[in-house]
Amino acid sequence: MRLAVLVPALLLSLVTGAASLAPLPPSNRAALIHDRLVQANLNRDHIMVVAHRAGWKKDGLAVRAENSFAAMDHAASTGVELVELDVRRSKDGVLVIMHDETLDRTTTCRGKVADHTLAELRSCRLIVEGQQTLTEERVFTLEEAMLHARGRILINIDNKLEPEALVEVADLARSLDMTEGVLLKLAVWNAERLQLARDIRHAIGPDIAFMPILADDAVTEPAFIDRTQSALGAPAAELVHWYRDATQPITTDGGPLLSPLARAAAIRNDAHLWINTYPIADRPEGMVAGGRGDYLALSTGRPEDVWGFFVERGVTIIQTDEPEAVIAWLDRQGLRRSYELTN
């Protein structure tokens, strides 16, 4: 269910367009965020927040174009540490930012991203989903996204391509002197997949943050969690706590990935535990968070039953569609520290 909020289309278009043309000035904030990311055990009193699709929603409604400069700027201005951006490839081989395989839902164009050259994609204007509001922004490249974020905020890469494309992303980050500006990741569920992750980790190099995605339909043993984090030198582990059937009770313990032994493995490997509370279209609320999703926190007025539940079980990174609400709640609980005070 989505919360109904009426936003005048023209005003929204002006706001999103203006934000994309007036980014915040660069700073060294990204370096401070990176330090907290790679030093989990020194920063467990500070909960980091990741804006899903760069921060496109508020109160359940899309108010900015997803994966847009406007969303990135807003996320940076509200204190978010990382923005999640989805990466695909154009027909002529350029890495571009787009969630879906096709352009239909989020732009004025139609067809598959991979069937369009970058020049053709440049003509596609981003829209605000639901409102179908046009913005002044066009489809842009990963390189442009990195330069736009540089110094202000980290980019969490959601790779929609073959796993080996992560090496290309790493090379791009290195060429832009942004090795501390990105976080790469790969789903790991068995020994073979772990070996692939190790190979990619080796090709990427140790100077770029890389983490596993672990889902509890396949990963249940703390020993495998421990071995994965250790083998990859991972600063974090993104956890998926499945909840597929809305007729079942929501999670009461966080599942095997948030068990005491799993949390001990995270501490032993100096790694953050990361949970996703955003919704997935046409799926039960909180599908990747044991039923404890953003909407539950907002609709019940009890964020402690969602974000607080996971913090109590050792989570120190929350990826959400409601970054402003999460940060405001964390601030009230004393679970955020200013970056301005960091030496």
Score class of each variant (00 low, 15 high):
264 A>G: 04
319 Q>Y: 09
276 N>E: 02
280 I>S: 08
213 I>S: 01
222 P>L: 06
151 G>S: 00
253 D>Y: 00
295 Y>F: 08
49 V>L: 12
31 A>L: 12
20 S>Y: 00
148 H>R: 15
118 L>R: 07
45 D>C: 04
160 K>Y: 03
208 I>V: 15
89 R>P: 07
169 V>R: 01
255 G>R: 07
234 A>R: 12
295 Y>K: 07
202 H>Q: 13
221 E>Y: 13
160 K>H: 01
300 T>N: 03
267 I>Q: 14
249 P>Q: 05
305 D>C: 08
275 I>C: 07
212 P>H: 09
5 V>R: 08
338 S>N: 10
25 P>L: 02
104 D>Q: 04
236 A>P: 07
320 T>F: 06
222 P>F: 02
174 R>H: 07
243 Y>H: 06
89 R>T: 13
106 T>S: 11
216 D>H: 09
314 G>W: 05
177 D>C: 13
91 K>E: 10
222 P>Q: 10
95 L>C: 07
331 D>W: 00
22 A>G: 06
221 E>D: 15
339 Y>R: 01
215 A>R: 12
76 A>Q: 05
302 R>F: 00
162 E>T: 14
8 P>C: 02
80 V>Q: 05
24 L>R: 08
37 L>C: 13
219 V>G: 00
95 L>Y: 10
249 P>L: 03
184 L>C: 14
194 L>V: 11
186 L>C: 06
114 A>K: 11
314 G>N: 10
118 L>F: 12
257 L>W: 14
67 N>V: 05
76 A>H: 06
243 Y>F: 10
210 F>Q: 05
88 R>Q: 09
153 I>H: 01
89 R>V: 13
221 E>M: 14
142 L>A: 01
43 N>L: 06
38 V>C: 04
269 N>L: 09
56 W>E: 14
143 E>G: 15
11 L>Y: 02
234 A>Y: 13
313 R>N: 09
184 L>M: 15
154 L>Q: 01
330 L>R: 01
195 Q>D: 11
98 M>R: 05
72 M>V: 12
29 R>Y: 06
63 V>H: 02
30 A>M: 08
